[in-house]
Design a protein around this nucleic acid. Sequence first.
RNA 1: GGUGGGUUCGUAUAACGGUUAGUACUCAAGAUUCUCAAUCUUGCAAUAUGGGUUCGAUUCCCGUACCCACUACCA
Length: 506
Amino acid sequence: MRTRVRFAPSPTGPLHMGGVRTALYNYLYAKQHGGDFIIRIEDTDSHRFVPGAEKYIIDSLRWCGIIPDEGVDENGNVVETASPKHPHAPYRQSQRRGIYRKYAEELVAKGYAYYAFDSSESLENERKEAESKGETFIYNYESRKNLRNSLTLPEEEVKKLLQETTDWTVRFKMPENTVVKMDDMIRGHIEVNTATLDDKVLWKRADELPTYHLANIVDDHLMEITEVIRGEEWLPSLPLHYLLYQAFGWKDTQPRFAHLPLLLKPVGNGKLSKRDGDKMGFPVFPLNWLNSDGETYHGYREDGYFPQAFVNMLAMLGWNPGTEQELFSMQELIDSFSIEKVSKSGAKFNPDKAKWYNKEYLRMTSDSELAEEFIPILDENGVTADKEKVEAVVALIKERATFVKDFWGICSYLFKAPQEYVQKDVDKFWKPENVGMAFEAMENTADAASMEEYIRAHEMPMGKVMNCIRLALTGASSGLGIADIMRFIGRDEALSRLKAAREKLG
RNA sequence: GGUGGGUUCGUAUAACGGUUAGUACUCAAGAUUCUCAAUCUUGCAAUAUGGGUUCGAUUCCCGUACCCACUACCA
């Protein structure tokens, strides 16, 4: 049987990095098994729909190199009409609404579900009432006996209500006392007694849409999904899903399940939320996202991360191959991924490690590619330089940077004379005797190499003289080697910077 | 509250019941260099807790503590 997995996001906002990781693990699993990775948009909650979220999700996955085989076309659009490549279209549940009702009614006919006529207000009242007594209201085998549904109302009235009202739902008739035995690819065997579960709504007449549970099971079945890999927040509804497969008689083709651990905040307790990023200065989202109230949330892409670094970091958050390898290309991830080695506990996200990954990828990127990314930044700073020269600069500085955007700050003095000098360094190195020696050494030599020889030959203090020169050339006493700097700016420019410094600093 | 899941250095994790409990990030020190960064070396630092099973438990079982999720006509 061909492996088919799906990523089924809800377009209720930007996809955060935890969601990207879920998609990634699905993708890796599919590719490793030579199967299909499918995208399905679960937009059965019309109230929470956020415009742009669907496109954001697909764009994010594309940026990460997570390309769906089915559900989304080459242009990044969700497929709406069936074709050989996308036989299960449409892939948006709101556009599949016609198919779910009959499945809901099939369950009612078989006695696995029933019609419920309680209004949301009356249920709200039940909840409040229970709460005031310190109890929790649950719609289950006990309470349904006293509520308005097709189990309690006379058949005549049920028929009438079904036809004349639109405020009813189909609820799953949770067995009263049955142990559901389940298996999870990550967590192993799990058992739950149905006595603690409630009668979940499966389908709503009001908008003629299924809820997550029904849509999910029906679509996974119709789309021939073989493994469901999703977040841990779904583990509590796994018994319901098992029971639904059983009720439909789809037990033999039921997918296997894997529930991924959550991504947690770097410090403190709780799961990673979009606010954490702003508070602690790291992105939570793959791409920038502009909120409806004008607020922008940072994305890894815009903050300067390489998509491969982001993906690599994400892959290692909750999974590792059991070896000491940390750097993986997408293909290597595909080859070595295994769902059994995914850890069971939530992982605190570590922003430092994310930066480390980017630094490693920066080093692995060729000077030529980095130069191409750097040239526009040089442009912005009013510098035009030919690519060959930029490549040479990049080669010198790439080990000192984490992001390409760091480059300018590290090497601007190779293109422009410093406008100001770091006071602390001035105090330390700009002393009359040092300045005198610096001038003597530079004026009497033609290049950096001979200058260094001269300093040595005349037994001048190398550190003091060089740092004095560096201060004049770069504006600070830290940075590249003097020889490297002078190779780029030339001896004459160096001398003129020395003179300029003497004018400004005395 | 109830149900389910989880718990190895600060963080991510490794260790098919037998290891001086390993690695990476962070941090600190040293080496190196004209400075800084990089690099190299070294160091700090963990099996939540109490029982049990076993010759032997980080690993298996039970209790406790703590953390997380779920408990909607949301996903």
